[in-house]
């Protein structure tokens, strides 16, 4: 199956690969898996004043999953938390022209954003509760 140019581009030069320290106060970590294939993705955000100032990812999966997460980190950067939550997997599908069999790879990226934000929020409330 041929990948679109954009997928190939992200695959060959993925943006924002890496990780932050999980324990850091303003970091949220999302670790998710795709039940369809068993691939895993970690996406992290760094938040300042409710704005995502930086993001990193690491994906063990197919080219579309790598491209989706790479794109997701680009998109969340500079957005507020609420704005980031509006990113849908269908936006990713459209941007990367993913075929139907690769839709679950983009779902993985949406899940990862959500779970990173949730982790960030959860840890916030934990900290303020103390």
């Amino acid at each position: 199956m041929a990948y679109s140019d954009k997928v190939v581009d992200h695959y060959n030069s993925p943006r924002n690969v890496g990780s932050f320290k999980k324990e850091e106060d303003n970091v949220g970590t999302g670790l998710v898996g795709a039940p369809e294939c068993g691939d895993v993705m970690k996406l992290q955000i760094k938040v300042e004043d409710n704005r995502i100032v930086d993001a990193k990812f690491k994906t063990f999966g197919c080219g579309s999953a790598i491209a989706s997460s790479s794109l997701a980190t680009e998109w969340v950067k500079g957005k507020s938390i609420d704005e980031a939550l509006t990113i849908k997997n269908t936006d990713i599908v459209e941007e990367l022209s993913l075929p139907p069999v690769k839709i679950h790879c983009s779902v993985l990226a949406e899940d990862a954003i959500r779970s990173a934000i949730k982790d960030y929020k959860d840890r916030r409330t934990e900290n303020t509760a103390e």
Partner: peptide
């Protein structure tokens, strides 16, 4: 439910993937 996994399982998998890498 096809998503539910044993507690801590995904973390283990991720680590194994990193080792493998």
């Amino acid at each position: 439910d096809e998503r539910k996994l044993p507690a801590g399982f995904l973390e283990d998998i991720f680590e194994l993937q990193e080792t493998l890498e």
